[in-house]
Design a protein around this nucleic acid. Structure first.
Lengths: 210, 210
DNA sequence: GCATGGTCCTGACGCTGTAAAGATTCGGTT
DNA sequence: AACCGAATCTTTACAGCGTCAGGACCATGC
Protein backbone atom coordinates (compact mmCIF):
# COMPACT_ATOMS: atom_id res chain seq x y z
CA UNK A 1 0.00 0.00 0.00
CA UNK A 2 2.10 2.90 -1.28
CA UNK A 3 -0.22 5.68 -0.30
CA UNK A 4 -0.49 5.62 3.47
CA UNK A 5 -1.92 9.03 4.03
CA UNK A 6 -4.88 9.00 1.68
CA UNK A 7 -6.39 5.58 2.14
CA UNK A 8 -9.93 5.43 0.72
CA UNK A 9 -12.38 6.52 3.35
CA UNK A 10 -14.29 3.27 3.20
CA UNK A 11 -11.25 1.27 4.26
CA UNK A 12 -9.96 3.64 6.89
CA UNK A 13 -11.03 3.10 10.45
CA UNK A 14 -13.59 5.69 11.44
CA UNK A 15 -12.20 8.69 13.26
CA UNK A 16 -14.48 8.02 16.17
CA UNK A 17 -13.99 4.54 17.46
CA UNK A 18 -17.49 4.11 18.79
CA UNK A 19 -16.90 1.88 21.77
CA UNK A 20 -13.39 2.75 22.72
CA UNK A 21 -13.85 2.61 26.48
CA UNK A 22 -15.05 -0.97 26.41
CA UNK A 23 -12.46 -1.90 23.82
CA UNK A 24 -9.68 -0.50 26.01
CA UNK A 25 -10.87 -2.45 29.02
CA UNK A 26 -11.06 -5.62 26.98
CA UNK A 27 -7.61 -5.08 25.47
CA UNK A 28 -6.06 -4.27 28.84
CA UNK A 29 -7.57 -7.38 30.32
CA UNK A 30 -6.38 -9.55 27.46
CA UNK A 31 -2.85 -8.24 27.78
CA UNK A 32 -2.90 -8.60 31.55
CA UNK A 33 -4.05 -12.19 31.28
CA UNK A 34 -1.36 -12.95 28.73
CA UNK A 35 1.64 -11.05 30.16
CA UNK A 36 0.68 -10.36 33.74
CA UNK A 37 -0.41 -7.06 35.27
CA UNK A 38 3.01 -5.47 34.88
CA UNK A 39 3.05 -6.29 31.21
CA UNK A 40 0.20 -3.91 30.56
CA UNK A 41 1.34 -0.67 28.97
CA UNK A 42 -1.11 2.02 28.06
CA UNK A 43 0.51 2.32 24.65
CA UNK A 44 0.19 -1.39 23.94
CA UNK A 45 -3.46 -1.25 24.99
CA UNK A 46 -4.02 1.69 22.66
CA UNK A 47 -2.29 -0.13 19.82
CA UNK A 48 -4.43 -3.21 20.41
CA UNK A 49 -7.53 -1.05 20.22
CA UNK A 50 -6.28 0.63 17.07
CA UNK A 51 -6.04 4.15 18.43
CA UNK A 52 -3.25 6.54 19.27
CA UNK A 53 -1.38 6.46 22.55
CA UNK A 54 -3.17 9.49 23.95
CA UNK A 55 -6.70 8.41 23.07
CA UNK A 56 -7.25 6.47 26.32
CA UNK A 57 -6.95 9.70 28.28
CA UNK A 58 -10.33 10.78 27.01
CA UNK A 59 -11.92 7.84 28.79
CA UNK A 60 -9.66 7.24 31.78
CA UNK A 61 -7.83 9.70 34.00
CA UNK A 62 -4.65 7.65 33.87
CA UNK A 63 -3.34 4.14 33.54
CA UNK A 64 -4.41 3.18 37.05
CA UNK A 65 -7.97 4.19 36.31
CA UNK A 66 -8.03 1.84 33.33
CA UNK A 67 -6.63 -1.01 35.41
CA UNK A 68 -9.16 -0.22 38.12
CA UNK A 69 -11.91 -0.62 35.54
CA UNK A 70 -10.51 -4.01 34.59
CA UNK A 71 -10.37 -4.97 38.26
CA UNK A 72 -13.96 -3.84 38.78
CA UNK A 73 -15.03 -6.05 35.90
CA UNK A 74 -13.20 -8.89 37.61
CA UNK A 75 -15.05 -8.32 40.86
CA UNK A 76 -18.37 -8.29 39.08
CA UNK A 77 -17.50 -11.62 37.48
CA UNK A 78 -16.33 -12.99 40.81
CA UNK A 79 -19.63 -12.02 42.38
CA UNK A 80 -21.55 -13.65 39.55
CA UNK A 81 -19.49 -16.81 39.90
CA UNK A 82 -20.08 -16.91 43.66
CA UNK A 83 -23.80 -16.39 43.32
CA UNK A 84 -24.00 -19.15 40.73
CA UNK A 85 -22.17 -21.57 43.01
CA UNK A 86 -24.36 -20.62 45.98
CA UNK A 87 -27.45 -21.19 43.90
CA UNK A 88 -26.26 -24.61 42.82
CA UNK A 89 -25.33 -25.58 46.36
CA UNK A 90 -28.89 -25.69 47.59
CA UNK A 91 -30.38 -24.74 50.89
CA UNK A 92 -27.98 -25.91 53.58
CA UNK A 93 -26.01 -22.89 54.82
CA UNK A 94 -22.79 -24.74 55.54
CA UNK A 95 -22.98 -26.46 52.18
CA UNK A 96 -23.41 -23.09 50.59
CA UNK A 97 -20.50 -21.68 52.57
CA UNK A 98 -18.21 -24.41 51.35
CA UNK A 99 -19.39 -23.90 47.77
CA UNK A 100 -18.69 -20.18 48.05
CA UNK A 101 -15.20 -20.72 49.38
CA UNK A 102 -14.49 -23.23 46.64
CA UNK A 103 -15.83 -20.74 44.12
CA UNK A 104 -13.60 -18.02 45.48
CA UNK A 105 -10.49 -20.18 45.32
CA UNK A 106 -11.47 -21.63 41.97
CA UNK A 107 -11.92 -18.17 40.49
CA UNK A 108 -8.44 -17.17 41.57
CA UNK A 109 -6.99 -20.37 40.23
CA UNK A 110 -8.80 -20.10 36.91
CA UNK A 111 -7.89 -16.44 36.30
CA UNK A 112 -4.65 -15.90 38.19
CA UNK A 113 -3.60 -12.75 36.35
CA UNK A 114 -7.00 -11.11 36.73
CA UNK A 115 -7.15 -12.05 40.39
CA UNK A 116 -3.66 -10.71 40.93
CA UNK A 117 -4.71 -7.46 39.27
CA UNK A 118 -7.77 -7.20 41.52
CA UNK A 119 -5.48 -7.61 44.51
CA UNK A 120 -3.05 -4.94 43.39
CA UNK A 121 -2.55 -2.77 46.46
CA UNK A 122 -2.64 0.48 44.53
CA UNK A 123 -6.36 -0.06 44.10
CA UNK A 124 -7.06 -1.10 47.67
CA UNK A 125 -6.89 2.47 48.85
CA UNK A 126 -10.56 2.97 49.60
CA UNK A 127 -12.20 5.92 47.93
CA UNK A 128 -9.75 6.15 45.07
CA UNK A 129 -12.01 4.34 42.61
CA UNK A 130 -15.60 4.33 43.62
CA UNK A 131 -16.87 1.84 41.04
CA UNK A 132 -14.13 -0.57 42.00
CA UNK A 133 -14.89 -0.22 45.70
CA UNK A 134 -18.56 -0.89 45.12
CA UNK A 135 -17.90 -3.94 42.97
CA UNK A 136 -15.43 -5.30 45.49
CA UNK A 137 -17.73 -4.75 48.43
CA UNK A 138 -20.59 -6.47 46.66
CA UNK A 139 -18.45 -9.42 45.69
CA UNK A 140 -17.71 -10.18 49.34
CA UNK A 141 -21.27 -10.10 50.58
CA UNK A 142 -22.35 -13.62 49.59
CA UNK A 143 -19.60 -15.07 51.76
CA UNK A 144 -20.50 -12.92 54.75
CA UNK A 145 -24.18 -13.79 54.36
CA UNK A 146 -23.49 -17.49 54.25
CA UNK A 147 -21.38 -17.29 57.39
CA UNK A 148 -24.13 -15.43 59.20
CA UNK A 149 -26.67 -18.05 58.21
CA UNK A 150 -24.39 -20.77 59.49
CA UNK A 151 -24.44 -19.18 62.95
CA UNK A 152 -28.02 -18.08 63.47
CA UNK A 153 -27.97 -17.78 67.23
CA UNK A 154 -24.44 -16.58 67.70
CA UNK A 155 -23.35 -13.22 69.04
CA UNK A 156 -22.22 -10.53 66.70
CA UNK A 157 -18.63 -10.96 67.85
CA UNK A 158 -18.73 -14.66 67.08
CA UNK A 159 -20.16 -14.10 63.64
CA UNK A 160 -17.61 -11.44 62.83
CA UNK A 161 -14.81 -13.68 63.96
CA UNK A 162 -16.08 -16.57 61.88
CA UNK A 163 -16.46 -14.31 58.91
CA UNK A 164 -12.89 -13.08 59.24
CA UNK A 165 -11.64 -16.62 59.57
CA UNK A 166 -13.47 -17.86 56.50
CA UNK A 167 -12.45 -14.88 54.45
CA UNK A 168 -8.82 -15.10 55.50
CA UNK A 169 -8.67 -18.81 54.85
CA UNK A 170 -10.32 -18.53 51.46
CA UNK A 171 -8.22 -15.52 50.53
CA UNK A 172 -5.01 -17.19 51.58
CA UNK A 173 -5.89 -20.33 49.69
CA UNK A 174 -6.86 -18.28 46.65
CA UNK A 175 -3.53 -16.51 46.54
CA UNK A 176 -1.43 -19.54 47.27
CA UNK A 177 -3.38 -21.65 44.80
CA UNK A 178 -3.34 -19.05 42.06
CA UNK A 179 0.44 -18.97 42.32
CA UNK A 180 0.61 -22.74 42.44
CA UNK A 181 2.35 -22.60 45.80
CA UNK A 182 -0.12 -24.88 47.51
CA UNK A 183 0.86 -27.66 45.16
CA UNK A 184 3.12 -29.39 47.63
CA UNK A 185 0.39 -29.65 50.24
CA UNK A 186 -2.94 -30.16 48.55
CA UNK A 187 -4.12 -31.63 45.28
CA UNK A 188 -4.60 -28.68 42.99
CA UNK A 189 -6.26 -30.81 40.34
CA UNK A 190 -9.33 -31.15 42.56
CA UNK A 191 -9.42 -27.76 44.12
CA UNK A 192 -13.05 -27.99 45.21
CA UNK A 193 -12.33 -31.00 47.34
CA UNK A 194 -9.19 -29.44 48.78
CA UNK A 195 -11.07 -26.29 49.69
CA UNK A 196 -13.77 -28.39 51.27
CA UNK A 197 -11.23 -30.14 53.44
CA UNK A 198 -9.73 -26.91 54.64
CA UNK A 199 -13.02 -25.14 55.27
CA UNK A 200 -14.18 -28.14 57.25
CA UNK A 201 -11.32 -27.50 59.65
CA UNK A 202 -13.07 -24.34 60.76
CA UNK A 203 -15.43 -24.47 63.70
CA UNK A 204 -18.20 -22.80 61.79
CA UNK A 205 -20.83 -25.47 62.00
CA UNK A 206 -20.95 -29.12 62.78
CA UNK A 207 -19.59 -30.49 59.55
CA UNK A 208 -21.94 -33.36 58.72
CA UNK A 209 -19.81 -35.39 56.37
CA UNK A 210 -16.52 -36.52 57.92
CA UNK B 1 31.99 24.86 42.94
CA UNK B 2 33.36 26.05 39.62
CA UNK B 3 35.72 23.18 39.04
CA UNK B 4 33.61 20.08 38.88
CA UNK B 5 36.03 17.78 37.18
CA UNK B 6 39.06 18.19 39.43
CA UNK B 7 37.69 18.10 42.92
CA UNK B 8 40.42 17.43 45.49
CA UNK B 9 40.91 13.74 45.87
CA UNK B 10 40.32 13.82 49.59
CA UNK B 11 36.78 15.11 49.17
CA UNK B 12 35.80 12.96 46.23
CA UNK B 13 34.11 9.68 46.89
CA UNK B 14 36.45 6.79 46.22
CA UNK B 15 36.15 5.29 42.78
CA UNK B 16 35.48 1.89 44.24
CA UNK B 17 32.50 1.99 46.52
CA UNK B 18 33.58 -0.86 48.76
CA UNK B 19 30.27 -2.32 49.79
CA UNK B 20 28.05 -1.45 46.90
CA UNK B 21 26.07 -4.66 46.78
CA UNK B 22 24.89 -4.31 50.37
CA UNK B 23 24.34 -0.59 49.91
CA UNK B 24 22.15 -1.22 46.87
CA UNK B 25 20.04 -3.75 48.73
CA UNK B 26 19.62 -1.38 51.64
CA UNK B 27 18.73 1.53 49.38
CA UNK B 28 16.26 -0.53 47.37
CA UNK B 29 14.62 -1.71 50.56
CA UNK B 30 14.40 1.81 51.96
CA UNK B 31 12.78 3.11 48.80
CA UNK B 32 10.41 0.15 48.62
CA UNK B 33 9.32 0.71 52.21
CA UNK B 34 8.78 4.40 51.55
CA UNK B 35 7.16 4.36 48.10
CA UNK B 36 6.02 0.78 47.63
CA UNK B 37 7.55 -1.90 45.43
CA UNK B 38 6.57 -0.16 42.20
CA UNK B 39 8.27 3.02 43.33
CA UNK B 40 11.66 1.36 43.18
CA UNK B 41 13.64 2.38 40.13
CA UNK B 42 17.11 1.07 39.54
CA UNK B 43 18.29 4.57 38.79
CA UNK B 44 16.91 5.96 42.03
CA UNK B 45 18.56 3.13 43.94
CA UNK B 46 21.86 3.91 42.25
CA UNK B 47 21.46 7.61 43.05
CA UNK B 48 20.76 6.80 46.68
CA UNK B 49 23.91 4.71 46.82
CA UNK B 50 25.91 7.48 45.17
CA UNK B 51 26.86 5.58 42.05
CA UNK B 52 25.97 5.77 38.40
CA UNK B 53 22.91 4.17 36.89
CA UNK B 54 24.84 1.28 35.35
CA UNK B 55 26.88 0.38 38.43
CA UNK B 56 24.27 -2.03 39.85
CA UNK B 57 24.70 -4.28 36.84
CA UNK B 58 28.11 -5.34 38.15
CA UNK B 59 26.41 -6.86 41.18
CA UNK B 60 22.96 -7.88 39.94
CA UNK B 61 21.91 -9.35 36.62
CA UNK B 62 18.94 -6.98 36.40
CA UNK B 63 16.42 -5.09 38.46
CA UNK B 64 14.49 -8.21 39.39
CA UNK B 65 17.63 -9.80 40.80
CA UNK B 66 18.12 -6.83 43.09
CA UNK B 67 14.52 -6.97 44.26
CA UNK B 68 14.87 -10.71 44.77
CA UNK B 69 17.82 -10.01 47.06
CA UNK B 70 15.69 -7.59 49.06
CA UNK B 71 12.93 -10.19 49.26
CA UNK B 72 15.39 -12.84 50.41
CA UNK B 73 16.52 -10.51 53.17
CA UNK B 74 12.88 -10.13 54.14
CA UNK B 75 12.37 -13.87 54.35
CA UNK B 76 15.44 -14.25 56.52
CA UNK B 77 14.06 -11.60 58.87
CA UNK B 78 10.66 -13.25 58.83
CA UNK B 79 12.24 -16.54 59.82
CA UNK B 80 14.18 -14.88 62.61
CA UNK B 81 11.03 -13.17 63.88
CA UNK B 82 9.12 -16.45 63.81
CA UNK B 83 11.84 -18.34 65.65
CA UNK B 84 12.00 -15.64 68.30
CA UNK B 85 8.24 -15.81 68.83
CA UNK B 86 8.32 -19.59 69.00
CA UNK B 87 11.09 -19.45 71.56
CA UNK B 88 9.17 -17.00 73.71
CA UNK B 89 6.00 -19.06 73.51
CA UNK B 90 7.35 -21.94 75.55
CA UNK B 91 6.80 -25.64 75.22
CA UNK B 92 3.13 -26.16 74.42
CA UNK B 93 2.85 -26.91 70.69
CA UNK B 94 -0.50 -25.22 70.17
CA UNK B 95 0.65 -22.19 72.09
CA UNK B 96 3.68 -22.09 69.84
CA UNK B 97 1.53 -22.47 66.73
CA UNK B 98 -0.59 -19.50 67.73
CA UNK B 99 2.51 -17.45 68.48
CA UNK B 100 3.92 -18.31 65.05
CA UNK B 101 0.75 -17.35 63.26
CA UNK B 102 0.61 -14.09 65.18
CA UNK B 103 4.23 -13.48 64.31
CA UNK B 104 3.54 -14.12 60.66
CA UNK B 105 0.61 -11.74 60.56
CA UNK B 106 2.43 -9.19 62.71
CA UNK B 107 5.41 -9.20 60.40
CA UNK B 108 3.23 -8.46 57.40
CA UNK B 109 1.41 -5.73 59.28
CA UNK B 110 4.61 -4.13 60.56
CA UNK B 111 6.39 -4.16 57.19
CA UNK B 112 3.61 -4.08 54.61
CA UNK B 113 5.77 -2.93 51.72
CA UNK B 114 8.48 -5.48 52.35
CA UNK B 115 5.91 -8.22 52.73
CA UNK B 116 4.23 -7.16 49.53
CA UNK B 117 7.58 -7.29 47.77
CA UNK B 118 8.23 -10.78 49.07
CA UNK B 119 4.88 -11.83 47.66
CA UNK B 120 5.52 -10.36 44.24
CA UNK B 121 4.58 -13.11 41.84
CA UNK B 122 7.54 -12.50 39.54
CA UNK B 123 9.73 -14.02 42.23
CA UNK B 124 7.48 -16.96 43.02
CA UNK B 125 8.62 -18.79 39.91
CA UNK B 126 10.65 -21.49 41.60
CA UNK B 127 14.21 -21.83 40.44
CA UNK B 128 14.55 -18.30 39.15
CA UNK B 129 16.38 -17.07 42.23
CA UNK B 130 17.94 -19.81 44.26
CA UNK B 131 18.89 -17.76 47.30
CA UNK B 132 15.36 -16.40 47.48
CA UNK B 133 13.81 -19.85 47.18
CA UNK B 134 16.00 -21.18 49.96
CA UNK B 135 15.22 -18.28 52.29
CA UNK B 136 11.51 -18.57 51.58
CA UNK B 137 11.45 -22.31 52.12
CA UNK B 138 13.28 -21.99 55.39
CA UNK B 139 10.99 -19.25 56.63
CA UNK B 140 7.98 -21.54 56.33
CA UNK B 141 9.41 -24.48 58.22
CA UNK B 142 8.73 -23.29 61.79
CA UNK B 143 5.03 -23.15 61.04
CA UNK B 144 4.95 -26.61 59.50
CA UNK B 145 6.92 -28.04 62.41
CA UNK B 146 4.58 -26.56 64.97
CA UNK B 147 1.55 -27.98 63.18
CA UNK B 148 3.14 -31.42 63.08
CA UNK B 149 3.85 -31.26 66.80
CA UNK B 150 0.24 -30.33 67.46
CA UNK B 151 -0.91 -33.53 65.78
CA UNK B 152 1.54 -36.19 66.96
CA UNK B 153 -0.55 -39.24 66.23
CA UNK B 154 -2.33 -38.03 63.12
CA UNK B 155 -1.95 -39.42 59.64
CA UNK B 156 0.21 -37.67 57.12
CA UNK B 157 -2.85 -36.55 55.18
CA UNK B 158 -4.35 -34.98 58.27
CA UNK B 159 -1.16 -33.15 59.13
CA UNK B 160 -0.74 -31.87 55.59
CA UNK B 161 -4.31 -30.67 55.58
CA UNK B 162 -3.88 -28.90 58.88
CA UNK B 163 -0.67 -27.34 57.69
CA UNK B 164 -2.34 -26.03 54.54
CA UNK B 165 -5.21 -24.64 56.60
CA UNK B 166 -2.94 -22.85 59.06
CA UNK B 167 -0.75 -21.50 56.33
CA UNK B 168 -3.66 -20.31 54.22
CA UNK B 169 -5.37 -18.71 57.18
CA UNK B 170 -2.23 -16.96 58.35
CA UNK B 171 -1.32 -15.91 54.84
CA UNK B 172 -4.76 -14.57 54.13
CA UNK B 173 -4.81 -12.68 57.41
CA UNK B 174 -1.32 -11.35 56.72
CA UNK B 175 -2.29 -9.94 53.35
CA UNK B 176 -5.63 -8.58 54.44
CA UNK B 177 -4.15 -7.07 57.57
CA UNK B 178 -1.14 -5.57 55.84
CA UNK B 179 -3.51 -3.76 53.51
CA UNK B 180 -5.73 -2.75 56.39
CA UNK B 181 -8.68 -4.52 54.81
CA UNK B 182 -9.44 -6.59 57.86
CA UNK B 183 -10.13 -3.43 59.80
CA UNK B 184 -13.90 -3.70 59.56
CA UNK B 185 -13.92 -7.18 61.06
CA UNK B 186 -11.19 -7.47 63.64
CA UNK B 187 -9.36 -5.11 65.93
CA UNK B 188 -6.13 -4.34 64.13
CA UNK B 189 -4.70 -2.55 67.13
CA UNK B 190 -4.36 -5.88 68.95
CA UNK B 191 -3.41 -8.10 66.12
CA UNK B 192 -2.01 -10.86 68.30
CA UNK B 193 -5.32 -11.34 70.02
CA UNK B 194 -7.20 -11.23 66.73
CA UNK B 195 -4.91 -13.83 65.21
CA UNK B 196 -5.36 -15.98 68.29
CA UNK B 197 -9.10 -15.85 67.93
CA UNK B 198 -8.97 -16.89 64.28
CA UNK B 199 -6.42 -19.64 64.75
CA UNK B 200 -8.52 -21.02 67.58
CA UNK B 201 -11.31 -21.56 65.08
CA UNK B 202 -9.22 -24.26 63.45
CA UNK B 203 -9.61 -27.84 64.57
CA UNK B 204 -5.91 -28.27 65.10
CA UNK B 205 -5.89 -29.11 68.75
CA UNK B 206 -8.27 -28.80 71.63
CA UNK B 207 -7.89 -25.13 72.35
CA UNK B 208 -7.54 -24.98 76.13
CA UNK B 209 -8.47 -21.39 76.88
CA UNK B 210 -11.91 -20.41 75.62
C1' DG C 1 56.51 -2.22 36.56
C1' DC C 2 53.25 -4.10 34.19
C1' DA C 3 49.31 -6.89 32.76
C1' DT C 4 44.77 -8.64 34.31
C1' DG C 5 40.41 -8.25 35.66
C1' DG C 6 37.01 -6.32 38.68
C1' DT C 7 34.61 -1.91 39.53
C1' DC C 8 32.66 2.17 37.96
C1' DC C 9 31.20 6.06 34.49
C1' DT C 10 29.39 8.19 30.18
C1' DG C 11 26.40 8.03 26.54
C1' DA C 12 22.91 5.97 24.01
C1' DC C 13 18.60 3.20 22.57
C1' DG C 14 13.89 2.16 22.78
C1' DC C 15 10.36 1.94 25.88
C1' DT C 16 7.10 4.10 29.21
C1' DG C 17 3.27 7.58 31.23
C1' DT C 18 1.46 11.79 30.34
C1' DA C 19 0.75 16.71 28.89
C1' DA C 20 -0.26 20.35 25.16
C1' DA C 21 -2.08 21.69 20.88
C1' DG C 22 -4.39 20.80 16.71
C1' DA C 23 -7.63 17.95 13.67
C1' DT C 24 -11.99 15.68 13.02
C1' DT C 25 -16.64 14.50 13.84
C1' DC C 26 -21.12 14.33 16.47
C1' DG C 27 -25.30 16.54 18.34
C1' DG C 28 -28.16 20.20 19.08
C1' DT C 29 -29.62 25.18 18.00
C1' DT C 30 -30.76 28.44 15.10
C1' DA D 1 -29.24 23.94 5.91
C1' DA D 2 -25.65 26.23 8.32
C1' DC D 3 -23.43 26.68 12.36
C1' DC D 4 -21.17 26.09 16.95
C1' DG D 5 -19.73 23.87 21.07
C1' DA D 6 -18.27 19.61 22.89
C1' DA D 7 -16.53 15.19 22.51
C1' DT D 8 -13.22 12.33 20.42
C1' DC D 9 -8.96 11.31 18.36
C1' DT D 10 -3.97 12.51 16.46
C1' DT D 11 0.56 14.48 16.54
C1' DT D 12 4.31 15.94 18.90
C1' DA D 13 7.04 16.35 22.83
C1' DC D 14 9.24 15.61 27.47
C1' DA D 15 11.20 13.32 31.33
C1' DG D 16 12.10 8.99 33.43
C1' DC D 17 12.75 4.11 32.96
C1' DG D 18 15.73 -0.61 32.19
C1' DT D 19 19.51 -1.94 29.81
C1' DC D 20 23.69 -2.20 26.91
C1' DA D 21 28.32 -0.87 24.71
C1' DG D 22 32.57 1.25 25.29
C1' DG D 23 35.85 3.45 27.93
C1' DA D 24 38.07 5.03 32.50
C1' DC D 25 39.97 3.79 36.86
C1' DC D 26 42.40 1.03 40.23
C1' DA D 27 43.65 -3.03 43.45
C1' DT D 28 45.94 -7.18 42.91
C1' DG D 29 49.50 -10.73 41.52
C1' DC D 30 53.47 -11.65 38.73
Amino acid sequence: MPDGTMRPTALRAPYHHGGLEAALIAAARAIAERDGPDGVSLRAVARAAGVSQAAPYHHFADKDALLAAVAAEGFRELRAALLARAEAAGGDPFERLRALAAGYVGFARARPALFRLMETPAFQRAGAYRALDAARQKSYLPLADAVAECLPGASRAKRVNACAAVWSLAHGMAILASDGRLGGLVDLSDLDKATDALIRQLNIAAAPGA
